[in-house]
């Protein structure tokens, strides 16, 4: 069940100059959630930021009653959210949206670009629990933007591409040799910039395997009421906040 809950700022872990993990804590218990779910955060004291902001849930701790979010500063809202002080309240609506499906998967490739890796921690854990062989493929502009690899290494193999060649293979994620060498994955999960996800989805289509993409369209309400965040699917416009954010790329019109 969706809920609105007041959390308190608990701490930051800055990963680089523009990316941080925000941890929020509540006195109540944190609702159960699935990999792929997101939350709408109301950003306190942010003039000019009118609406809530949707973020993937990076991690949840049901013992400490915390939620954490992987946030890259891209504008006023995400900048202000990086300036919270101990005790600041943040209203959170969650868990929102659908989740990744894991049934039937045996060997999964998780392709993330930039902050698109955010939902992969929970997804990787669930896949591992289901006995799935997990490989992460992370694409970034440069070495400093390749983050969370230590966490991912606990769950599976980690492959990296950087555009400037400072880490892993040089180029875009879709140019990684994982796609050309003996390719035995039976499922791709992807999250990141649209052009990257489209390219990944095309590869999945060529290889004849399923691909699930988590979209991040602009949203107003996040709960299915306003119909602002729709994406075009073969079954008509669907709400990214409710029927998504995870879609099988076969359903998405942008693939065709």
């Amino acid at each position: 069940m969706k809920q609105i809950q007041d959390f308190k700022f608990s701490g930051y872990k800055w990963l680089n100059y523009s990316t941080y993990i925000l941890t929020l804590k509540t006195d109540e218990s944190v609702a159960g959630l699935e990999p792929g779910n997101f939350a709408e955060l109301q950003i306190p004291d942010a003039p000019g930021v009118f609406l809530r902001r949707p973020f993937s849930i990076l991690d949840v701790d049901h013992k400490k009653n915390t939620l954490s979010f992987y946030i890259k500063i891209v504008g006023k809202g995400t900048r202000q959210l990086g300036k919270l002080k101990l005790g600041d309240k943040v209203s959170v609506i969650y868990p929102l949206g659908n989740s990744f499906t894991v049934n039937g998967t045996q060997k999964a490739l998780l392709v993330g670009g930039g902050s698109g890796v955010a939902p992969f921690l929970l997804l990787g854990r669930k896949l591992k629990k289901h006995g799935v062989d997990v490989t992460f493929l992370i694409g970034a502009r440069t070495k400093e933007d390749v983050l969370l690899t230590e966490e991912f290494e606990k769950l599976g193999k980690v492959l990296v591409t950087t555009e400037d060649g400072t880490m892993g293979q040089t180029g875009l994620v879709t140019q990684h040799s994982a796609f050309t060498d003996d390719f035995t994955f039976d499922k791709i999960y992807t999250c990141g910039p649209d052009p990257m996800m489209k390219a990944v989805a095309r590869i999945a289509k060529e290889k004849g395997i399923d691909c699930e993409a988590s979209l991040e369209n602009m949203m107003a309400c996040g709960i299915g009421a306003c119909l602002c965040c729709v994406t075009e699917t073969i079954h008509g416009n669907k709400r990214v906040c409710t029927e998504g954010p995870v879609f099988n790329t076969k359903e998405l019109v942008w693939l065709i």
Binding site: V49, F50, L51, M218, A220, C226, C228, V230, E232
Partner: peptide, 17 residues
């Protein structure tokens, strides 16, 4: 079906849809 995405824009004290 309604209009194509993008269907919204935030303004400093409101929104467009």
């Amino acid at each position: 079906e309604g209009n194509p995405y993008p269907r919204m824009a935030e303004t400093s004290s409101g929104m467009l849809n």
